[in-house]
Design a protein around this nucleic acid. Structure first.
Lengths: 145, 145
DNA sequence: GGCCATTTAATTGCGCACAACTTAGTTGCG
DNA sequence: CGCAACTAAGTTGTGCGCAATTAAATGGCC
């Protein structure tokens, strides 16, 4: 395949992913507005709801985000009264993040969000899993490169 | 399917997309470093290489970006000497963006980028097209919601 | 015990995304 | 014609993503 045609395909693929990511972001923005959460903040809350108290480091590994992104984000969640941060006593370098009662209660209000999102995508659960599988493969491959 | 399980699936799907988008961004960052372009700047250049001089509005429609994003981005491309912006004479509201000779010459150096990206994804061209198709469907559906 | 590499967070700086608003130019309608 | 509605860019403010740097704590090793 000639370079020029590849350049056009590249245009389409990278644009598709970029656009899809932003389209998702937009719909999540609407769905999460009532909860007062942004999309990345929602990701952090999902991790805390699912895995409980954990250090910043662990959250970063699960979401592939570094402290430059997480530190201010967590500070905003703390200001909103959803999480509490405290230095670990065993390892003074580590900061453990845990939900406040308000943060825990927010989970109930977040439960309907995924169903709304699922409907908005227009895909079946099967197709969603396929998409997720493809994206996972791509991400692993890209992470190695 | 119960809400709680959907919440977990949602975690996985939205995270997958978010992660894939950022993984792509990272690899593009490396591939484009030599050209002095960021990933969104590359998208704008692709549009200009393919479609020639056009108003900011048109670029925004093609990439689904608004003036709040494009204005400073185009200003940086202009500072870098890659594009020129000038008010249209027929419609003084409109600003036409066109490539400078340097911007045009950059195209040759960008030609090998897609092949590198294709290799980095580890997918065949067929799979890429499938992914693109799925993402396109999702994006249209989400845009309507 | 003292030194050094490593680890964990936080901070700084830059660019992108988007909402809300502003400014200037155009169009349409009475 | 004149004025309201609309349109194209730009500006401002907030938050995310990431590279680079800093600060503090830990662990290993002599």
């Amino acid at each position: 395949m000639p370079d020029a045609e590849l350049l056009r395909l590249d245009h389409q693929v990278c644009f598709s992913l970029h656009a899809a990511s932003r389209a998702f972001g937009g719909v999540y923005r609407d769905a999460l507005k009532d909860l007062g959460l942004t999309y990345p903040q929602y990701l952090v809350m999902l991790v805390l709801w699912e895995h409980g108290p954990q250090p910043v480091k662990t959250i970063g590994e699960r979401l592939r985000l570094d402290s430059g992104t997480l530190s201010p984000l967590l500070k905003r969640l703390e200001t909103a009264g959803l999480v509490r941060r405290e230095r670990s006593s065993e390892d003074e370098r580590s900061v453990t993040v845990q939900l406040t009662p308000a943060g825990d209660e927010l989970r109930a209000r977040a439960l309907p969000v995924p169903r709304r999102m699922l409907a908005a995508t227009g895909l079946t659960i099967e197709e969603l899993r396929t998409l997720q599988g493809l994206l996972g493969r791509v991400t692993s491959a890209l992470d190695e490169a």
